[in-house]
Nucleic acid binder design. Sequence first.
DNA 1: CGCTTCCTTCAGAAATTTGTGAAGTTAAGA
DNA 2: TCTTAACTTCACAAATTTCTGAAGGAAGCG
Lengths: 168, 168
Amino acid sequence: MTEPAEATGPGRDPEAVSKFVEGFAAQLVEAGMQRMPARVFAALLASDSGSLTSAELGTQLKVSPAAVSGAVRYLAQQHMVSREREPGSRRERYRVHSDQWYEALTSREAVLKRWEAALGEGVRSLGAETPAGRRMAETLAFFEFVDGEIAAMMERWRVHREQTYGRD
Amino acid sequence: MTEPAEATGPGRDPEAVSKFVEGFAAQLVEAGMQRMPARVFAALLASDSGSLTSAELGTQLKVSPAAVSGAVRYLAQQHMVSREREPGSRRERYRVHSDQWYEALTSREAVLKRWEAALGEGVRSLGAETPAGRRMAETLAFFEFVDGEIAAMMERWRVHREQTYGRD
DNA sequence: CGCTTCCTTCAGAAATTTGTGAAGTTAAGA
DNA sequence: TCTTAACTTCACAAATTTCTGAAGGAAGCG
């Protein structure tokens, strides 16, 4: 029986934590995410409190403060983490909300929108009546369809989740 | 009025085609795709026949046969293009099927599966009763939910598409 | 009001990724 | 069977990305 290890801050089982962090980060990287943001994100996901300071992240991941800073800025822009000022301290905490982050992941809305814009432009410039134009128009229609569906899907997830876990 | 340009093979309006190809490829790159596969894919999408030979791709994109070869291998692995042997010629054609490719894009099933595996591993090793374990379990549940929803969504798309465009 | 702590920014070094040229392989056509 | 066209593979060069160390700036605390 592998003792689940006590939930002491950075303690627990650094070995197991690190293994998960690196493994999960590797998968995120393969899906197109930059390495450092992926590692930071995985580390937060694996923390008991769901939040860590810059310093803690640097220590745990063995990287410089500069690297943490860059990664965290990226993640915040993508709405995958939020920053919190620890009142009465110049420490900053970075947090994953258990629902916030995967909404960010699916609602790659911004990405879809840009794809749609590029496709629309293509249809216009190549001509809607050309075979290529028609193919692009159909592709565009697909993305527009997906856009709508995703919103509905997230709504169903919220319901499903509340039934299973109760509110956040 | 900007003449839609004649649908002559490589002709049409090389200017407009190139503009679309580079623009759309750039968006795909930003979403995490490698540059050359993105350009090749965009070029195929913008071709009237929906298929091009290695040589045509090389000429149009101004890259070496080696680069085309690498890009095409990647795209084929991702099921985003299919290869066709032109009967009675050693030319190979690469093709986008109008439905095949976006199914490949959305059914990032393989990616999701690997994420799920990594998360499951994390839950096990950190302990399902720890706060971190619970967070990961919930995340895992979310991906499993998405898995199922995507299949249903694609089915709805097929119906929607057939009504709009008729069968392929 | 200055000291100290923590984070950020920036320039550059290191590592990784990407594309090329050249040689190799397969298969059509004579 | 031999020639030749077409794609692939491989080693290396170039470009890009990624991280670090050092300097700079904001905010608590004495």
